[in-house]
């Protein structure tokens, strides 16, 4: 299999998960579309090296983290792309629940958002999140706990605290 085929297969297998993660972080469809494209563009640029990485998807998420953390960089990326690429197809409008959750997520610090997205959207365990972020499991638990608390506060009466989810 040549590099193009390898990359395209990797893209088919993983891009949906990355889009889910990017959407969870940003809450914006256009941002998520653009972040996914930018992450894979960078991956293709250094595919020879990246293809040897143990966890290529974690590398992609790192790129998404970095870009999504910098709103101005994101705007710059978008502006730079606007004339060069056809616009992606529009997405269906989000549900009321999703709008609520997005608003609540936006009020959280990035580390909490990231931990929640990894845990709830990609089903990563506390140990896996700790390995990916370089934090201790205790810190990850703290991020998740504080993230849930933050969401509860932001969601208000619409949210009823859940039971403890098995995250280990």
């Amino acid at each position: 299999m040549n590099a193009v085929d390898e990359f395209d297969e990797f893209y088919r297998d993983t891009s949906r998960r990355l889009a889910r993660y990017a959407y969870g972080l940003t809450g914006d469809v256009a941002d998520a579309q653009d972040l996914v494209q930018e992450a894979y563009a960078r991956a293709w640029q250094r595919w020879r090296r990246l293809s040897g990485y143990e966890d290529q998807e974690a590398w992609l998420r790192l790129v998404v983290n970095r870009l999504s953390a910098d709103r101005w960089r994101r705007l710059g990326v978008r502006r730079a792309r606007a004339a060069a690429e056809p616009p992606p197809r529009p997405a269906a409008p989000p549900s009321e629940n999703t709008v609520l959750l997005i608003s609540a997520m936006r009020a959280l610090p990035m580390v909490h958002r990231r931990a929640l997205a990894l845990h709830y959207l990609l089903d990563r365990s506390v140990a896996e999140i700790a390995a990916e972020t370089g934090a201790s499991t205790g810190t990850v638990k703290s991020w998740l706990s504080r993230g849930r608390t933050g969401l509860a506060a932001a969601l208000g009466p619409a949210y009823e605290p859940e039971g403890v989810r098995d995250a280990h």
């Binding site: 889910r20 690429e85 629940n97 959750l101």
Partner: peptide
């Protein structure tokens, strides 16, 4: 909504409908 699993489930379903450009476009970029 009643709990976070429901809310994130909804968000996942929305995310899964986001149209993505083909791999070729990422390579071109």
């Amino acid at each position: 909504p009643t709990d976070l699993d429901d809310l994130f489930g909804d968000l996942s379903r929305t995310a899964d409908t986001i149209p993505l450009a083909p791999a070729e476009q990422a390579r071109r970029r």
